[in-house]
Computed example of a mutant assay.
Amino acid sequence: MKSRFRSWTDVQIFLAVFREGSTLAASRKIGMAQPTVARRIDVLEHEVGLVLFDRGNRGFRPTEAARTLLPLAEALEAAAKSFAAAAEALTRPRPIRITAVFTNFSPAVTQIFSEFTASHPAVRFEFLPTARPLDLLGGEVDIALRITRRQPEPALICRRISTARFTLFGAPSYAAKHGLPVSPDDLAGHVFVTYAPDDMPSIYHDWLAARITPGQIILAFSEYGLLEAAIRAGQGLGIMNLKLAETDESAGRLIRCFPPPDEMSAAHLMLISPEAHRRAEVREFTKFFAPRYAALFK
């Protein structure tokens, strides 16, 4: 007889009867009426043209045919579970992956994320704090907050946040001992700390290095936070973002040496990958986040 097997449900029932040893125990296990379990076993045997169980007073005993089919039935069961898990994962929102330098994830910025998640509890975020430019088009990240002098890839969705301005800062302790330069041409006699990451260019290190001798740079850091700490400690003068230095400057912990040179200005951008922007939760987040984030830099 040609097999006409076509029901995954009957395989589930077959496995339950095989494992439990009777249609009554199987019915309790899978939540199905015992007569229905017995009938479906009969149907399955008819469809495959095999006797799968010997019926007796002690229940259903698997035949040799049933034992032969058991590994295949278990493989179907595993495949069905994998299918269900994959389908569930596809319906569950992926995290929105955001990259920026560590200092961008300030308490004020974190508060914006908290406000969004309060009204969108199903949306999750994955933060990648790094100065290295991750590949948006290649799928490394969904959103990037970047300060850059380069034109972004035309395919990226771009929101301009502000113009980032930089200049030289020093601590009061440094100023008390050495004074402060009053212009980019007044750097002789001073020592500097600089930000020079290993895996990417730094236009601000290059700007400084072009105007002083190598011996005037006493420390170079690959982490921006270490640079800021060194400047605050009075170890040397260093270039900082005006916005990031704002609190320390207002409190008198840092002193601005001279107005920000135009050639140090850079665009502060929010970049979104086109693929991520097709997701409704990403569009909803960027609509919420961008104006609130930009307001912090006015």
Score class of each variant (00 low, 15 high):
245 A>I: 07
156 L>G: 02
179 G>T: 06
160 R>T: 15
130 T>Y: 05
140 E>N: 10
141 V>G: 00
252 G>D: 08
152 P>D: 06
237 L>K: 03
173 S>T: 15
120 H>A: 05
131 A>R: 14
191 V>H: 13
188 A>V: 10
164 A>K: 11
215 G>A: 15
242 L>A: 11
170 G>Y: 00
191 V>T: 15
128 L>C: 07
253 R>K: 14
136 L>P: 01
215 G>N: 13
163 T>V: 15
241 N>W: 15
171 A>F: 04
220 A>R: 15
185 D>I: 01
202 S>F: 07
191 V>C: 11
125 F>Y: 10
175 A>Y: 02
202 S>L: 13
157 I>F: 02
223 E>Q: 15
151 Q>F: 09
131 A>W: 07
239 I>T: 03
252 G>L: 12
219 L>D: 13
194 T>I: 08
239 I>F: 08
219 L>S: 12
143 I>L: 06
137 L>Y: 00
155 A>G: 00
156 L>W: 00
206 D>W: 04
249 E>I: 10
209 A>Y: 08
230 A>W: 05
195 Y>H: 15
155 A>H: 04
229 A>L: 12
170 G>V: 01
192 F>W: 08
147 I>L: 13
189 G>Q: 12
249 E>L: 15
232 R>A: 14
217 I>Q: 03
165 R>F: 09
218 I>S: 07
166 F>D: 06
249 E>N: 03
180 L>V: 01
173 S>P: 00
215 G>Y: 10
183 S>P: 03
148 T>V: 05
221 F>Y: 14
147 I>S: 09
205 H>N: 13
218 I>M: 05
184 P>V: 05
136 L>I: 00
134 L>I: 01
236 G>V: 02
180 L>E: 05
194 T>P: 04
187 L>F: 11
152 P>F: 06
165 R>N: 11
188 A>P: 02
255 I>S: 02
228 E>G: 08
178 H>D: 07
251 A>S: 14
164 A>Q: 14
133 P>Q: 02
198 D>L: 14
225 G>K: 06
222 S>W: 09
237 L>Q: 01
215 G>M: 07
201 P>G: 09
147 I>T: 06
181 P>A: 05
218 I>W: 04
170 G>F: 04
215 G>Q: 15
251 A>P: 05
246 E>I: 03
129 P>E: 11
249 E>K: 09
201 P>Y: 06
209 A>C: 06
118 A>N: 09
164 A>M: 11
137 L>S: 08
172 P>G: 00
202 S>V: 07
145 L>T: 00
238 G>L: 04
198 D>P: 02
227 L>E: 13
143 I>M: 00
153 E>F: 01
168 L>P: 00
129 P>M: 07
240 M>P: 00
171 A>N: 10
147 I>Q: 12
140 E>T: 01
131 A>I: 06
217 I>T: 12
149 R>N: 13
169 F>R: 04
241 N>R: 11
160 R>W: 09
204 Y>I: 07
251 A>M: 11
232 R>H: 11
240 M>K: 05
141 V>C: 09
214 P>F: 07
205 H>P: 04
120 H>T: 03
140 E>R: 03
199 D>V: 07
